[in-house]
Amino acid sequence: MSENTFDNYQFDDEIKRALALLKYEIPTKVQIEVIPKVFENRDLIVKSQTGSGKTASFGIPICQIIESDCINPQALILTPTRELATQVRDNISDIGRFKRIKTVALYGKEPISQQIEEFEQKIHIIVGTPGRLKDHIERGTFILDEIKYLIIDEADEMLNMGFLKDVEAILTKLPIDRRTMVFSATYPKKVENICRQYMTDPINISIASENILTNKIEQQIIEVNEAGKISMLKDITIVENPDSCIIFCKTKGRVDKVFAELEKSNYSCEKIHGSIKQNDRFSVMEGFKIGNFRYLVATDVAARGIDVNNISLVVNFDIPIEKESYVHRIGRTGRAGKTGKAISFKTPSDGENLKAIEKYIDYEIPVRVPPTTQEIVKMKNLFEKKVRGRRNGI
């Protein structure tokens, strides 16, 4: 085999047909490492960035292994947010479509009775958030005896969001002889403790952050004082005039402030953070995907699950403290073969964080000169024309 392709794997014809339809040809690094280990029936701890293809790395082999004639669920996948749960469900449903693998997503703020009705039919894989899954398990909605695989996805974010007790409650109810896989962008102490307590001789797989970011995404730094950030954001958006843009802030309060300023200036925008009701967050995400508005102001946690291919600009209104978060943020652009741009606002206090990020991605991000008054005036008519066009549904 001169080249590692999905054709080299001994998958069922139904799985091969689905992968061909999905244009899955060359496996990613995480898929090359994880897929064989799943078939070896091992517990896995996988450190890998969002966007590396990790959902398919466990979704493909599980769909291969699943017994489609079995009535009870055989795999349980925990995700931190409703948005990610629906994304994972859709991805796995696509992979298992021709094998007739039935996957459901369970999350809060949706009638539990409606979810219970789904289990009157055959269900093979369950994806859900910890709180709602714990609720269903306590109600006895589905039989746990046939669960052979537990996947904890985005484990670091899940525990950061306070789901530790719910996750542990679920773990104690599952069959002991199951296989457990933990996927996480980082490996903090909380995740390590869970792995040590509930896994059996796990294999550690660490996928280095690839430097494709510098090829597909043009990264820039703009130096600015804290008080000048809002003004700089408006100048940048006028000059760049993106079709679709995410603006990342470090706190919910910052998101609210930036959103209010943009809305006051008639920007086509929405906001998303952890204090916004889950139903509203879901509606915002769907609206962003279909292009109902151009600018989304978000925190890191709330942006998990964003899977939009046409985001042309990411603005780090606040440079993140965690270097992995930087990679996750700017990875929202430059997707599906397209190029993108990421602009980060650096204040005098951001020096150490920025150095850590640059060391992590092995790339010195160039400093950009702020837009001149002449550039802003030149682009303002085009910017306002696009704003008017969006309001008129053009």
Rank of each mutant, 00 (worst) to 15 (best):
M232Q: 09
M232V: 06
M232L: 15
L233N: 03
L233G: 01
K234P: 00
K234W: 09
K234A: 02
K234T: 10
D235I: 05
D235R: 05
T237E: 06
V239F: 07
E240A: 13
N241I: 10
N241P: 09
N241A: 08
P242L: 09
D243I: 12
C245R: 14
I246Y: 10
I246D: 06
I246V: 15
I247T: 11
F248P: 01
F248C: 06
C249Y: 11
C249N: 15
K250R: 15
K252Q: 09
K252I: 05
G253T: 13
G253F: 14
R254L: 05
R254V: 15
R254Q: 12
V255E: 00
V255T: 12
V255Q: 02
V255I: 07
V255P: 02
D256I: 07
D256Y: 02
K257C: 03
V258K: 00
F259M: 01
F259E: 04
F259V: 02
A260V: 07
E261Q: 09
E261M: 11
L262A: 03
E263S: 03
E263D: 11
S265Y: 04
S265V: 02
Y267P: 03
Y267R: 02
S268N: 09
E270A: 13
E270R: 15
E270H: 14
E270W: 05
I272T: 01
I272Q: 01
G274R: 03
S275L: 08
S275G: 07
S275Q: 13
Q278A: 11
Q278E: 13
Q278K: 12
N279P: 02
R281N: 00
R281M: 03
S283R: 12
S283T: 14
S283W: 04
V284G: 00
V284W: 02
M285A: 12
G287A: 06
G287K: 06
F288Y: 08
K289Q: 11
K289N: 08
I290C: 12
N292E: 13
N292V: 04
